[in-house]
Amino acid sequence: MAKGGKKRSTQKNKVTLKMAKNAVRVTPDGRRRLDLSNMGIETFPKCLLKLPDLDELDLSRNQLKKLPGLIGDLVSLRWLDLHSNQLEVLPDTFGQLMSLSHLNLSNNRLTSAGLPHSLGNLTRLRSLNLGLNQLDALPGTMVGLRGLQELGLFDNLLTSLPECVQVLTNITRLNTKRNPFSQGHSVNRDRLEKEVYLAKESSLCGSCLNRCKEERRWTLGGGRRRGGEGDADIRGRPYSGLITPNSLAQANQDQWRLIVTNHGPGKSSALKDGQRATEYGFA
């Protein structure tokens, strides 16, 4: 009986080519999108390699430990979300995904040795999220990401801002929170926006949403208390810089609230209601 139950469980998490084809949706702008997030997938579905015309692929909130080298064959991908898996290393062929404009690798187990030098080949990248990993350096080849505009490096092991980041002059949104920067180190934010809202209002729980609204009012200089005058102006206004579709703060909030602290691998703590959702990277 136990064996039968285990077999059914494994079968449930298996993605077949037929399932994948049926799950492909066309976005309003005509892109072919496949959402396989939060399905308990442990092994990269090789059947996806038979869908070379995919534009967007969401494999976030699964249990992927590695990616096959053949992932480089999905050359048409423009948007790839792999956040909240268990990835430690990216294959060298990752640099073949040269059509990518948005890449989310946050909340994995990536170390600096696990980032291939070929990452610098992704010259069309506009948004890159490497937050919530175990990075203490970045590949020097990332100087080639000249079009990069948004970069998430929060909750890593960086003791200083990598030199390759300092020369990427098109970056306008940079998140380096909760890194063990050496004393006296400072990030030049003259050209960077200090507040980045990264979740839709509809994706936040009530207390987080109220906290974000409160902080936004004070940031804008309104100084109004929660529930005071001015709420109508903020309600329903989308946060700036949102890139859709954004799976990072969608359903199952308890799962994506788990963060890896800098106290060591394997330890985690839950995001408190008062903590801002602004620190959870770029979609």
Rank of each mutant, 00 (worst) to 15 (best):
G40P: 15
L17W: 06
R25C: 11
V165W: 00
T93R: 06
I71A: 11
E214P: 04
N22P: 05
N188S: 05
K194H: 03
L54P: 03
D73W: 11
T278A: 14
H102S: 03
K213D: 08
R146D: 13
M142V: 12
G40Y: 12
R32P: 14
T27R: 13
S268I: 13
S247P: 12
V165F: 02
L77E: 04
G264R: 04
K3M: 11
T16Y: 08
S112G: 07
L119P: 07
T219Y: 10
S112H: 11
N262A: 12
I71S: 13
E279D: 14
N252E: 07
L34E: 08
M142W: 10
K6N: 02
L110K: 01
H83T: 00
V196G: 01
S247C: 09
C164L: 03
Q250S: 13
Q149Y: 04
L174T: 08
G114P: 03
D92L: 13
Y280Q: 10
V24W: 06
N62Q: 05
Q275P: 05
T278L: 15
K213M: 10
L74P: 07
I243M: 14
Q166A: 05
V260E: 10
S118F: 12
T172Q: 06
L59V: 01
K14G: 01
S101A: 07
N175K: 03
R146L: 09
L70V: 07
L17I: 03
W79L: 07
S76F: 02
T141A: 14
W218I: 12
A251C: 09
N62W: 07
L49W: 11
K14E: 01
N104K: 00
G152H: 03
R61T: 02
L103Q: 00
S84Q: 13
H185P: 05
L130I: 01
L132H: 08
K21E: 14
G184Y: 08
K21W: 09
S112Q: 09
R109K: 14
P91G: 02
D81L: 08
D35V: 06
L105F: 02
N133E: 03
R178M: 01
G227E: 08
L67N: 00
N62P: 10
H263V: 08
V165H: 00
G228D: 15
L158F: 11
K194I: 06
R32C: 13
V165S: 00
E163N: 07
F282P: 02
